[in-house]
Amino acid sequence: MPLNIDVHEAKPGTTRVALTGSLDSDTAPQLEKAMGALNSAVIAFDMTNLAFISSAGLRVIFATAKRQRAKGGQIGMSNLRPGVRKVFEIVKALPDMNVFASEKEMDEYLARFQRPQE
């Protein structure tokens, strides 16, 4: 299953990345490349249409998070499907990630996070 990555700047400093399909070892390099090209304070992943994530996909998400943290930025994920959420749970990663049930929640959180920077 292929992966479709939709990257667009929702507002200045915030980039929304909508993932559709499967983020596995075959498609992870695509996302890694796309993330490497990003230079945004906040990266918000919309996982609504992400059907599957493998450890290779997790690695890219984590690496993105690590890079964001290193430069004082932030990432968020919203609308995780149960299967995807479970993968995050197994690796005990959820406490370290900003995961939200809806985009609205994520927007509110990220807006709060951004305010001091403005």
Binding site: S55, R59, F62, A63, K66, R67, I90
Partner: peptide, 8 residues
């Protein structure tokens, strides 16, 4: 580990 390679 900048690449975030990990292992379970």
């Amino acid at each position: 580990n900048a690449e975030c390679m990990f292992t379970t």
